[in-house]
Design a binder for these strands. Sequence first.
RNA 1: CGGGACGUAGCGCAGUUUGGUAGCGUAUCUGAUUUGGGAUCAGAGGGUCGCAGGUUCAAAUCCUGUCGUCCCGACCA
Length: 569
Amino acid sequence: MRATKLYAPTLREVPAEAEIASHKLMLMAGLICKITAGMYTYLPLAWRVMKKIEAIIREEMDGIDGQELMMPIVQPSDLWEASGRWPVYGEEMMRLKDRHQREYCLGPTHEEMITWQVAHDLKSYKQLPIRLYQIQSKFRDERRPRFGLMRSREFIMKDMYSFDRDEMGLQKSYDAAYGAYSRIFSRCGLNFRPVEADSGAIGGSGSHEFMALADSGEAEVLFCDGCHYAANVEIAALSPEKAAAEEEKAIEEVVTPACGTIEAVANFLGLPTNQTVKSLCYQADEEFVLVLIRGDRHLNEVKLQNALGCVELAMATDEAIAAHGLIKGFIGPVGVSGIKIVIDEEVSFMSNQVVGANQKDCHLCNVNLGRDYKADIIADLRLVDAGDVCPHCGKGHLQSARGIEVGQVFKLYTKYSEKLKAVYIDENGVEKPTVMGCYGIGVGRTMAALIEQSHDDYGIIWPMAIAPYQVVIVPVNDKDEAITACCEKLSQDLTASGIEVVLDDRKERSGVKFNDADLIGYPIRVTVGTKGLEKGIVELKYRHNGEVEEIAVGESAAYISDKVKEMLR
RNA sequence: CGGGACGUAGCGCAGUUUGGUAGCGUAUCUGAUUUGGGAUCAGAGGGUCGCAGGUUCAAAUCCUGUCGUCCCGACCA
């Protein structure tokens, strides 16, 4: 490929719209172009990278007996009605109607479609297991698309679905996908960690997310410094601190003027915040609930949602709080009636708690669970903090890091197969639902995550495995015929041996070419100049470490070819 | 959806407070000189100032509405 023909509009200045490194660099290196919020054209360089990532995915999916297929992007509403998700999916789903006013959506995911497909053809247990995947555009009308390809509204996803006879089969499919994902992200050159993730109402050890570690990541992950435990902060469990039980004292009302926050109350009473209890109000579907958590702790809403088993969860509005006769800043569990009370298990071990008195400027001291109020639900509701003791080994401490979710593996069990009748007949002639799993990889996000992890002040640093081109040849003087001839020959020889090479034949000064080469991030740069040719050498420069080698012109093609192959391993 | 900011040439920006018919840098095109880390000189082209109303002799500038974009938050199979 000649640089004069390459459609790669590089920019000198940083576009104002981009905030994080991968977004800036993809725009500057001419990889992507925004058409509207959250929708991008993948320009030729990006598309080459995407195709390489996809090729790795295909190899690994095929390697675990996955078969690629392609389903329509447009999906009929019937299937979503059948699964029950049409009314609940909400505004994130792009919906449309055809000329007959029939309803459709642009697929945000394909569980319904694939389950329908398998239901259509599956008869006997002898056909199982089935593992099918596709690589395709997905549509999610995000409330707030951001960070370029990190959170876009149209994006390319590999989604695989497995169908097994039973949970043992599912576990095999799940383990196979887990292994394949680890190999895929390793081959792409990512620094990643699989972490335990929220599996929603389905429960169990049902999900892992593959997190590319990067400061710009939207997710917080915690991992133990003493064992292999790693989890998304949303679900990270913990062993509660069991305070030694004290003798229950008599309840006491104290005036706490204008102490509407935990800090203010604790200060006023001269107590540490961990002896106070925070009361939070939530709207869980139609129900108003009161949630208690230790004053110095933070509530984990995912845990709360799972404990309540609700679909919608939001902090109650000030109006709703007032309507239940509660005074914001002075809410407590004593004396309330008709409101479900959910408490963090840590609170259940606290003696002589400080809580709001449900009167303006008043708190209650020496309140005790059981004697003074009852809890409807006791559960682990606390957001884990860095430094907490590991819930798995009980010895190590949890470290916090930011992560970009590039993939997720998820056990669906029979949630969809029952509703959409993906059933089979077993040896005994009994009809049973298949046990399903689903496994996603964000292809564009993987590319963006790699850039987040692998760049410097000059540009992108691609690993050889997914670089858009492997080698760039830079002639430093376009008037020197010996240089031109040498570059042309080298380009032809490399291309003939299967190397992907760009010859920068633009009429630009070498500085411009060097800067663009660094920006685009070709793994190997070959510089051909007058002084070098007089000595009979060309110069190799490696993008990842900046090391320079001088190679005899006659041996350069073979040497570079071998280097590329070595770096691919 | 709440809060904040912004929309002027491909890109980055000034001009808006105080209304007078648009400018800088860069990129692009032509020519010359240059050629190992974003060259220099000379010349040229490119903008109904997001859009629609309104005020005014006159609007990028003031008013109203609208569309779009970005950031923080909430949300996220």
